[in-house]
């Protein structure tokens, strides 16, 4: 076994930058120089044959079999917790309190989507406002780049923690109803706000130039 001291030896000449991504627990395998003489080759083969490494391997797996220390997670019966910053299948947010849909149908997400998988329909509603009548994302094509969430001026479309995308169809869509936070959840404040892409940055106020709002 080699400690990371060995790594120091092997890592000669590598800049700080080159080492940056290497964990301190990594170590380099000691690779002996390749034998060049026939005798060297023969003796290496002999050594390897007689050292019984093969049997070590056999022993290790046999041991594990009998230990029966199984690590399988039996999805979908059991599910792992996803990290709090995990962002996948989209969700559509509502405004707090009023529960009004945040999406105003500006179409920026549709425009920016690099895999061209968003389509929406808008119309004039009874209150003479722009209304999103239907909105879909083809999850079969979405590459979860997050651009849509980033561009949304209303913080309406966000990536939620849902990651299950299984479908019998290659093109698998989610529709507006499927994405919208249920209204009771929005009103009761259960809707989650997400950090990161598409969220207000904490220092946003300071960055907006002051405009005279005397009235």
């Amino acid at each position: 076994m080699h400690t990371h001291d060995t790594h120091e030896q092997h890592g000669h000449g590598e800049s700080e930058l080159g080492n940056r991504y290497i964990s301190e627990h990594y170590y380099y395998v000691d690779i002996a120089p390749y034998p060049t003489t026939p005798w060297g080759k023969f003796s290496r083969a002999l050594k390897r044959t007689l050292r019984g490494e093969l049997f070590v391997g056999l022993w290790v797996v046999l041991r594990e079999m009998f230990k029966f220390d199984i690590h399988t997670v039996q999805y979908p019966k059991e599910k792992l917790l996803v990290g709090p910053r995990y962002r996948a299948v989209h969700a559509m947010q509502r405004l707090f309190e009023s529960g009004t849909e945040r999406c105003i149908g500006c179409g920026l997400c549709e425009k920016i989507c690099i895999s061209n998988c968003i389509r929406m329909e808008t119309r004039l509603d009874e209150k003479s406002r722009k209304e999103v009548s239907e909105y879909t994302i083809n999850l079969g094509r979405c590459i979860f780049c997050g651009y849509c969430a980033e561009v949304c001026p209303e913080l309406a479309i966000v990536h939620g923690p849902r990651y299950e995308n299984v479908s019998e169809q290659r093109a698998h869509y989610i529709d507006y109803a499927g994405m919208l936070t249920p209204i009771d959840m929005a009103i009761s404040g259960e809707q989650k706000e997400f950090d990161g892409f598409g969220a207000v940055t904490p220092h946003e106020d300071a960055r907006v130039k002051q405009t005279p709002l005397a009235y």
């Binding site: 797996v61 594990e64 029966f68 199984i70 690590h71 399988t72 039996q74």
Partner: peptide, 13 residues
Amino acid sequence: KVLAFMQRRLGPM
């Protein structure tokens, strides 16, 4: 099954 157990898996379930 054997491969799975040796690799700390369950295999077909």
